[in-house]
Design a binder for these strands. Structure first.
Length: 197
DNA sequence: CTAAAGATGTCCT
DNA sequence: GGACATCTTTAGA
């Protein structure tokens, strides 16, 4: 039994990272939190690879922080940065090959009141339009690092029930100092929920 | 051990 | 456009 709202399967993630990143646009991120349900449509992502990508956390090899990137595809890689922010990635490529896709922004769909509470703001466009804003709105913290996204648990990604067509804009990645030449940032054209146009 | 930078967000000018 | 909050991770001595 497999319906459209089930988590994306392992084989979706076990592929070329840039392709996975592009295809994650329009998918739905689902967060079960103490009885409440939070959902959002992914509108902005960035691909980070391994040894050939100087901007990747995995560029210099395996460390305690990035070990999830080296593991099985379809897991959450969550890291803490700037002393206060969490960022959510999904791991890709086959076991042993480090890579991940950074989820940078989403369009709030379900549980908006709860997101407003976590974010301490009422403005819809300001809830999930950035990687750290997204994790704050969905209450995603270090405890979910390594979480399996292919099972119906606290966090997973599924296909939308009512898919809408959209155009994809491709740019270089932002917020990094190296690897800026790679066109590995993707976002949904004209979405008001993208972090930066 | 020490130090510097960081896949950011917010507030200020 | 720029300062700053705040702390983990990593690299280098």
């Amino acid at each position: 039994m497999c319906t459209h709202s089930d988590p994306l399967p392992r084989r979706f993630y076990e592929r070329d990272t840039v392709s996975v990143a592009r295809e994650l646009l329009g998918k739905v991120i689902v967060r079960h939190l103490r009885g409440s349900l939070l959902k959002g449509i992914i509108v902005e992502v960035e691909a980070y690879r391994g040894g050939d990508d100087p901007a990747s956390h995995a560029y210099r090899g395996l460390t305690k922080r990035n070990q999830v990137m080296f593991g099985e595809p379809g897991h959450a890689y969550i890291y803490f940065t700037y002393g206060m922010h969490y960022c959510l990635n999904v791991t890709t490529e086959k076991l042993g090959q480090p890579a991940a896709v950074l989820i940078r922004a989403a369009q709030p769909l379900t549980g908006i009141d709860r997101m407003k509470k976590w974010r301490k703001t009422d403005r819809l466009e300001n809830l999930t339009n950035g990687p750290a804003k997204l994790t704050q709105a969905l209450s995603i913290k270090r405890a979910l690092n390594g979480h399996d996204l292919t099972k119906k648990g606290k966090l997973y990604i599924s296909r939308p029930t009512n898919p809408e067509t959209f155009s994809v804009v491709i740019t270089s990645r932002i917020g990094i100092k190296t690897g800026r030449n790679k066109p590995w940032r993707f976002f949904i054209q004209n979405s008001p929920f993208v972090s930066k146009q």
